[in-house]
Simulated scan of single mutants.
Amino acid sequence: PDPGLPSPEPGWRVWPRQWPRWAPYATAVWGVVYAAVQTVWAATGTTVPWSPHVAYAPGVELALAVLALLAAGVCLATPWPLARRGRVTVAAVLAVAIPVFAMGMASLPAYVVTLAALSGVESATGFAHVLLNTVGLALLLLVGVSHRRRLRNRCPRCGAGHPGDGSGPLVHPPASVATRPTRIQVYLLMCGLLPWAVVKTIWTLGGDALSVTAEKWREENAGGSGAAKALASVGIDVTVLAALAGIFLLLGLMYPWGQVFPRWTPLLTGRRVPRLLPLLPAWLSAIGLSVYGVVLVIYAPLSAAGALPRIEPDGTFTSSAGITWMVLFGGLAFGGLGFALITAARSYATRTRPACANAATDAMPGK
């Protein structure tokens, strides 16, 4: 190579920049794999749980397979100029596929918590199904964003209006704090965790609450992992610890140390935080938590009022009122954390959105 020219960048640095190019093809591969897995499960009668007590019917699995293939087909068409009918078809398929596959990965936070607690996975097929939906949802969102930007004659990668193919270096904005209204909204939503966390902590510390005795609580959790038992011995419930991790993520999304590694990260101090490092877990957790929380918050009062079947006490709870209150507290906690993550992640994504270097140069004064 000519010594006067700069050395070419390694592929591992260039490849992520070119995601608008490869995302449609990666989505097509995912669609074929997803359809094949769903078809095999339906043909063999494999149990794939949707909830602890409900499994996907073979007909539903085949419908999901068809939808995945349709999504794969329209994604392959997005990089090309499309007539009005083609644009409508792409928009319609993505409008259906994205919510469907988002619902399919809604239980991802629950699997993450059980794995973090070293409690194992209750259903291997259920976990595989959630992971397949998660990968598909992420790819479909990438394709949807780049397609929408192309339709607006914008750069499919950064969204700015500039010449070029959008494959060069990126310019990142300086670290910043979320706006005051955003911070207030997030803190208010975080308060939804308090009733649920207080009750869980009372049980873990040996107290009685909501018709559940400390003895019964210990019996029900006797089969937990060693890590969960060790945390419980010092009054920390593993799910409360997971919620604290969510709060840590929220703070990182709102303050500069979530964009530039702070001093208490010795080997990384001063380096830019990869944008997807906080955004990916935030978005993936927020979807499931917010949906689950809304369902519980709606169901609990309707059940108490008799509009829906009353929630019957199980082996831990001894009264219907106690378990109904806990369902409501859980809805406030999960929904509050989920919507707080959505709010903070939107702010973080806006504040940290990079621009292609040529777009930043064109925007300079005098250009």
Rank of each mutant, 00 (worst) to 15 (best):
F127C: 08
V100M: 12
L140R: 01
A65K: 05
G86K: 06
L82G: 02
A178T: 07
G120P: 09
G136A: 04
L76E: 01
G159A: 14
R157W: 09
L76C: 04
L67F: 11
P79T: 06
A117Q: 12
S176N: 08
L137D: 10
A110C: 00
V145S: 06
A97G: 09
A117D: 14
R87D: 07
L94C: 09
A175W: 11
L76M: 04
R157G: 07
L70H: 03
P163K: 13
R157C: 08
H172C: 09
S123T: 09
L69T: 06
A116E: 14
V96N: 10
R149F: 11
A65V: 10
A116M: 15
P156A: 05
R154M: 10
A91D: 15
A97V: 06
P156Y: 05
H162K: 05
L132T: 03
P109Y: 08
P109A: 05
V171H: 13
A124V: 09
A160F: 13
L115H: 00
R152I: 00
S119K: 15
V112C: 03
C75Y: 02
R87Q: 12
G86M: 01
R85T: 05
S146H: 06
A175V: 07
A175C: 08
L82I: 01
V130S: 07
S119G: 15
L131F: 02
S146W: 07
F101S: 03
H129L: 06
L140Q: 09
V112R: 02
V74H: 06
R87H: 06
L82R: 12
A117R: 14
V90Y: 02
R150V: 02
F101D: 03
R149N: 09
A95W: 12
V112A: 12
V171P: 08
N133F: 02
P81T: 03
T125K: 00
A178D: 07
M105Q: 14
L76P: 01
V113P: 00
V66H: 01
H147L: 00
A95L: 15
A110R: 11
G168A: 05
R152C: 01
V177Q: 08
T125S: 13
L139S: 04
L108R: 02
V113Y: 14
L142F: 13
L151T: 02
P99A: 14
V112N: 01
A175S: 13
F101G: 02
V177R: 15
V90F: 03
T114Q: 13
G159P: 13
